[in-house]
Design a protein around this nucleic acid. Sequence first.
DNA 1: TGTAATTAGTTTATATGTAAACTAATTAGC
DNA 2: GCTAATTAGTTTACATATAAACTAATTACA
Lengths: 164, 164
Amino acid sequence: MEKKYCHNELVSFADRDHEALMGVWWTGILLKKRAKHFFSNFLSSEVQFNIMMVLKYAEKPLTQSELGEQLLVDKSNITGLLDRMEKSGLIRRLSVPDDRRCYHIELTGTGREILEKVEQPYRDYVKKLMAEFSAKEIDDINRYMARLEKAVAAEESTAFKYRS
Amino acid sequence: MEKKYCHNELVSFADRDHEALMGVWWTGILLKKRAKHFFSNFLSSEVQFNIMMVLKYAEKPLTQSELGEQLLVDKSNITGLLDRMEKSGLIRRLSVPDDRRCYHIELTGTGREILEKVEQPYRDYVKKLMAEFSAKEIDDINRYMARLEKAVAAEESTAFKYRS
DNA sequence: TGTAATTAGTTTATATGTAAACTAATTAGC
DNA sequence: GCTAATTAGTTTACATATAAACTAATTACA
């Protein structure tokens, strides 16, 4: 039986490999959309939630660059994100005495309060979703994703960009 | 051992469930970033490639809405995407005789030529990536992603949005 | 058949994402 | 110590994404 692109009936051109890759892709997109909506009463996006979680649980103060690395967010993107979050009172930029180039980012009281409201419901949501899977299956998913990420990174280093 | 958010050393607050979910999330983001870069010599994004592939392999002419459903792209997003693709000569909007509200979207000659150039390298890339996995593992990934998507959809219908 | 509801697509406002060029501060290396 | 290279962050230009309000066309149905 031929497999489908994007889980739909109108289009078919994918093989099993491709379908698996697309599956991860689409599921990722779906999770992103769902999360954005989940937080939308409190935050303008799931990315802001991620930033706040990283700030809350970081073992040391983080600079913008470090924050970006944690979240795969480009430095040119971090600037605007933090601008908006600063404007809505969620975070603060603190100058770093040793290095006048960078800032340490910290949650404000308001930021902490809002995180307090959404963190547990979020954790409950994740639990509920993943209740679908057994412990072994959870481990499988963890391992498969780690391997896929590694494969992407490996391929990227050998074939930087497709050229005609 | 405590697990990490975003595969990094500075932050730890996730359990195994959460890690698996984040794994899918991050891998999806990674694939998106990689694909965007892969196509960047020919197309402004991987989304444009996906649109062109769907158009090429569709069994019947697609309207903007149908295209959007295939790709999880919102109708208000499709408009701009197709505007840009029309401007760069990749697609055409054809009026539909029976229904003056909608358009059928088709690839132009230029669009087909460009797709011709990138489709095979893309397929090769997917093959190379997924060579990491055995046939059984590929099937696992397919099944897991399908179940996760279903769980997201099911949860979404019961708890539409988190509210304070 | 005439009105209400629905559907297709656009527009606006705002957020996130990338690349490239840029400034300012720091570090490397002679 | 001085110069070159690097690093942190910003800015610009553009692409993608969502929600909500909107127009125009079609369909439902009383």
